[in-house]
Amino acid sequence: MFVAADIARAAVGGSLVGLSTAGMLYTHGRLSGITGIVGGAMHPKAQSESWSWRAAFIAGLLVSGLIARVVRPDLVTLHNTTNVVVLAVAGLLAGFGARISGGCTSGHGICGIGSFSLRSMAATGTFMVLGAVVVYTMRHVLFGGGV
């Protein structure tokens, strides 16, 4: 179930994400695609000149989580019942797929659609549909609402 407060929080949080994305474009001339930035940071030798801002970018994300842990731990899921193997496979698929596709939720969904890219719209539509298919399969076919 959801309530109006959830919508308000989603809109406020989304606005901050949009502001940050525009801010990175303004001050650094960079689009904030998380998978691309994390992937680039994994090759420090190949991209030495741009490694440091990527590291600062990732540090900013990590520190926001650390602060949330202290002030609002209810905003993160510290433990859940999802199987460790399922989580690892989920991450593997998400990382592999996003890197092959050239973007994830932030890259295609915000930067790409925000730049009116038809390719990003196609990619975003595709990953939304597949996400829905997988969740439907887990919740209503395999486990009957148990996940």
């Binding site: 496979v89 989920a90 592999f96 996003a98 092959i100 990953f127 549909v129 597949l130």
Partner: peptide, 13 residues
């Protein structure tokens, strides 16, 4: 295809 795999992983986890 990459987006499809990404979506599957996103939904799964």
């Amino acid at each position: 295809g990459g987006a499809a795999l990404f979506g599957a992983g996103w939904g799964l986890g």
